[in-house]
């Protein structure tokens, strides 16, 4: 279990994160989402022990991440991993094998062949996506209890994304791994994440079950016989509204059934309800926070 309690962390005199309090249960996949510069990468660095919070702590199974032995169970893959100019896959594997003795060479080679990567090739000759595939193969081969991935899908094609998602799911099922993954690819996160955490305004604005959170919002499209006054929706918990003549699109927060009944009471000619995607929920959340 990961317990995150960060009171504050600053970079260059600017507060990046504050009042972060969250628990990630074992065997779950948590999607870390937020706008550019919201502090996702900083949070992952704090979680991996790369950064030490100005105030607060990150604990794994009750032990602080700053204890080196605790980090034996954690594999952190940064958004742009380091490689020396002459590094080959074999060389990088050997370095990681030093720190992660359980690194599985067979699985590593299997994943590389699935990604069609040559382990003896120089890293400098790899494209950004190929390098990311390589490091994901490395991370998965370590079979860590806790896997922290920053921008894991950045630069990956659709096929590779699918493979990575399958492997992450396998890691959770077979090894009981806990995965924390930050990404802007919300549609991908939606397909395999159990939990989400939204970072906005230097803090975790909301977190919890992805499914439950998505169910908080619903979108309705209504058609009236005459152009309606937007004020008629003021009694509802409106998160977003778009009025175009006789047509209104509403994103509402609350119990969908009750909202539906309230909208019916306004006598629309047509009413249609649709489920929001995680991306829509994210946009609604962020918009709500900024309005």
């Amino acid at each position: 279990m990961i317990n995150i309690n960060i009171n504050s962390h600053s970079l260059g005199g600017r507060v990046i994160l504050e009042d972060i309090s969250m628990t990630v249960p074992d065997g779950k996949i948590l999607g870390l989402v937020g706008t550019n510069g919201s502090g996702k990468s900083t949070l992952l660095r704090l979680m991996s022990g790369v950064y030490v919070p100005d105030s607060g702590s990150v604990q794994y199974d009750g032990k602080n991440v700053t204890i080196p032995a605790v980090r034996e169970n954690i594999f952190f893959l940064p958004d742009d991993p380091y490689y020396a100019g002459q590094s080959t896959g074999t060389g990088i594997f050997d370095i990681y094998k030093t720190f992660y003795p359980n690194l599985d060479r067979e699985l590593y080679r299997e994943l590389l062949s699935r990604f069609k990567l040559d382990e003896k090739a120089h890293q400098r000759n790899f494209s950004k996506g190929m390098r990311r595939q390589f490091y994901i193969a490395l991370a998965l081969s370590a079979r860590p209890k806790y896997l922290l991935l920053d921008e894991a899908f950045d630069g990956l094609d659709a096929f590779t994304k699918k493979t990575v998602i399958d492997e992450l799911n396998r890691a959770v099922e077979e090894n009981g791994s806990t995965v924390v993954i930050s990404s802007h690819a919300l549609s991908e996160l939606e397909t395999f994440c159990d939990l989400y955490a939204l970072i906005e305004g230097q803090t975790i604005k909301s977190h919890g079950s992805l499914e439950e959170h998505a169910a908080k919002y619903s979108r309705y499209t209504l058609a009236f016989t005459e152009a309606p006054n937007p004020a008629i929706f003021s009694h509802l918990n409106v998160r977003d509204i778009d009025v175009r003549g006789k047509f209104v699109t509403l994103t509402l927060e609350g119990d969908p059934e009750k909202l539906y009944e309230s909208l019916l009471a306004l006598n629309p000619a047509v009413i249609d309800r649709e489920k929001l995607s995680f991306e829509d929920v994210f946009i609604t959340d962020v918009k709500g926070g900024r309005s």
Binding site: R45, P68, E72, I74, Y82, F99, Y100
Partner: peptide, 14 residues
């Protein structure tokens, strides 16, 4: 090198 530290400081060694 910041990129190197991103990996090195997460390794299980003080």
């Amino acid at each position: 090198n910041r990129k190197y530290l991103d990996s090195a400081f997460s390794f299980p060694i003080s």
